[in-house]
Design a protein around this nucleic acid. Sequence first.
DNA 1: GCAAAAGTGTTTCCTTTACACCCATGT
DNA 2: ACATGGGTGTAAAGGAAACACTTTTGC
Lengths: 234, 234
Amino acid sequence: MSVPRLAVTVDLVVLTVREQRLSALVWRRDRQPYENCWSLPGGFIQLDEDLPVAAARLMAERAGLADVRIHLEQLATYGYPDRDPRQRVVSVAYLGLAPDLPASSRAQVLWQAVEILTEADRAAFDHRRILLDGIERARAKLEYSPLAAAFCPPEFTVAELRRVYEIVWGTPLDPRNFHRKVTGADRFLVPTDRTTTRDGGRPARLYRRGAAETLHPPMLRPRPLSRRESVPAP
Amino acid sequence: MSVPRLAVTVDLVVLTVREQRLSALVWRRDRQPYENCWSLPGGFIQLDEDLPVAAARLMAERAGLADVRIHLEQLATYGYPDRDPRQRVVSVAYLGLAPDLPASSRAQVLWQAVEILTEADRAAFDHRRILLDGIERARAKLEYSPLAAAFCPPEFTVAELRRVYEIVWGTPLDPRNFHRKVTGADRFLVPTDRTTTRDGGRPARLYRRGAAETLHPPMLRPRPLSRRESVPAP
DNA sequence: GCAAAAGTGTTTCCTTTACACCCATGT
DNA sequence: ACATGGGTGTAAAGGAAACACTTTTGC
């Protein structure tokens, strides 16, 4: 028996926080299939190319984000037979978290708020599913990793970091308790000797990312409320 | 330019708890490459086959676990160019968690304790790396999901479940507090009206898996101890 | 001075931990 | 009777949430 060979792509879910919205980098399609839909930036991998290398190359070539240090991690692989009507394609999705960068110079590539992308399904292929998986991964990662800082510029204030959490999770957080938690977490933030007043009010200390790879203790997002108790009658 | 086409495989990390050890299902290789090494069960995907379908098929064909309800989830995808010396192969790894089952009838497929597999590197390809990733995923999943029960038979006691946690994490747990936590977690366990004395002592209630997909509150594994404090002088 | 945002202290509540103690079986 | 493991009660310790209050800037 012969071994079937398939086309393999890497697709990129690149997220950022801009204008108070969680946004993703999308490609506006101007031809079939899925003309006038959006798709994730991506492309075929080369025969001699490792997967993370392909992801970095496509980040430059198709997302227009060359020479930018962006956190990139593998998300998942999608391969059901009819996901691309032209041919069988297995796609390895990567998740990228970026600070608020200018979009690519190409008009075809733009940042778009994720609510707009996910509410009306104008997505090509199964890219809405992939985007949703990437968003959920990002939300979960903020709890146990210091990756919220990947959405921030190299130096940032605690309040800016808090706004990242609030926007990605869609939940308000207490500024005082948040401050204590993140400054107390082990090697999450390293203070600089500089401050800024760019957010108004009293000058805020600027921080840089620390060396932590996981957060101890974690920053748990408020849960909807899960216990079976109700208020007992008096 | 033409689209490169690659061979795509699914490889299986199937874990179980047997004889007080976390064990994986491995294939004993009797030919080149990597003759006399172990490899993970797996195989090429078919052209018209979805990835989870291929994983289920290979679980039956190559792992010898047909008609067994085993939790299967995608682990990660491995694709660096030289991982298979014969040809470029991209491999989508799946993680399976199984109760203590008899091994396949085929002598080539057997359960092996993971410490033995990972300590001396007699692994084919990058299968040691894949196995380690699968083990870490399983350890992490026990915290936030009810998947520990996937290692147990359909009906099990709290103590049997606790032994799963202890063996997978390699940590002793307080039986009393463990009992309270798992029986208190929302829809983790549903009590039956039956008991067993198969572990000796007072009869223990038998439970079945509940409908929960995540654990609230989570079962956090004891952390090594991370704070920077030391004992201050009096 | 006043508004605005940063940051600290304190109280309350709740979860987790440690462990004493009782329970129900096999031998 | 007594050994063995199952299961409950409870007090102490630790962490999170709520929020009053102080600090430091811009205007």
